[in-house]
Nucleic acid binder design. Structure first.
Length: 309
DNA sequence: GAGCCACCACACTTAAAATT
DNA sequence: AATTTTAAGTGTGGTGGCTC
């Protein structure tokens, strides 16, 4: 079984290695990739086409190759390893993630993606509703979640985005011919699926509901939207006990990012320090900065208003 | 202006129904 | 005939409207 990441890497390598004029057809690329990976990738043609488009885009809009040092993208001399901001620890200017096994993934990915966007300053800014539909991203349904052992036996990975889990699950279903021939929406569970779904037969619509029991966020401190909504109500019933700013527990990633010793600090302090970084790095492209702030539950949009941007 | 809240989009699947 | 939409379900992010 091959992941989208591997396919994307394969496409990139293929385009790098071969004469671009040769790889002019989608089928050609798919075939070369199939030969290379020894797999049938016909069902991945759409994804491969997207990757090709991404890689062959004109330079001013082309996505940057995944940078290693995501805090060094702006090439601001003050954020090189020699000249980092005195207020921040060295890694604040230059942080390296070789792999992203946890919630750190989000920040790194988002920062990488946004930095690429910010770097292309010639691209006219568009108001959000006019722009293309949002696709991909590291949050939402693409957030990496941990997989229960039962489900892991099927998808083969301990942690995957929900979308990837569904994909792998369908691959497993097709591979083992577990669809009801008379109604392909119905799934006949084999032993492994029976452990996961706790039923002999289910359908594709109920599948996600059943899957939810086996998918948990990697960062347990982040609550589901419904839980959060519920919590707001709970808090509203008990609020007023302690007026004034209260220290909050920040994530490990944010503590590391800010270089604080502990994980407890005022939310406003955390916001201010992140904002200082944004300004120092000339990241005032709010549409991009918002994503970064979201990862830390910080409302950059409102911060920007406060900062007069 | 700040905070809260509701709504929508996002990916993924198959097949039937609706539309072009 | 070909294409598009719709159906269910998941959690998070983006946005706009409303209230204080």
């Amino acid at each position: 079984m091959v992941s989208d990441q591997e396919i994307a890497r394969g496409v990139e390598n293929l385009l790098r290695q071969s004469d671009p004029s040769v790889a002019t057809t989608l089928n050609g690329v798919v075939q070369q990739l199939e030969a290379k990976l020894g797999l049938d990738l016909s069902h991945k043609a759409g994804f491969i086409r997207d990757q090709i488009n991404l890689l062959l885009r004109p330079p001013q809009t082309q996505a940057q190759p995944p940078p290693k040092d995501h805090f060094n993208l702006q090439h601001h001399p003050q954020f090189t390893s020699h000249h980092h901001h005195p207020q921040f620890p060295p890694h604040f200017a230059l942080q390296h993630h070789s792999q992203f096994p946890s919630h750190e993934l989000n920040f790194s990915e988002v920062f990488t993606q946004n930095a690429a966007t910010i770097a292309t300053t010639e691209v006219p800014k568009e108001s959000a509703p006019v722009g293309p539909k949002r696709r991909g991203g590291s949050g939402g349904l693409n957030k990496v979640c941990s997989v229960s052992p039962a489900l892991q036996a099927i998808v083969g990975e301990p942690a995957l985005p929900r979308t990837e889990i569904v994909k792998q699950l369908w691959a497993y279903i097709r591979k083992n011919s577990l669809q009801d021939p008379s109604n392909k929406r119905k799934i006949i569970c084999d032993d492994a699926l029976r452990v996961v779904f706790e039923t002999d037969c289910t359908d594709m619509f109920k599948m996600n509901k059943l899957l939810a029991k086996h998918i948990t966020p990697l960062d347990p401190s982040k609550e589901s939207s419904q839980t959060r909504k519920g919590k707001v109500k709970v808090e509203s019933t008990t609020e007023g006990v302690e007026p004034g700013p209260k220290p909050v527990i920040i994530s490990e990633a944010l503590a590391k990012f800010l270089g604080t010793g502990g994980r407890e600090m005022l939310a406003t302090e955390a916001e201010n320090r992140v904002w200082e970084y944004i300004k120092a790095n000339h990241l005032e492209d709010i549409s991009s900065a918002v994503n970064i702030g979201k990862d830390y539950n910080i409302n950059i949009r409102k911060l920007s208003k406060r900062a007069g941007l």
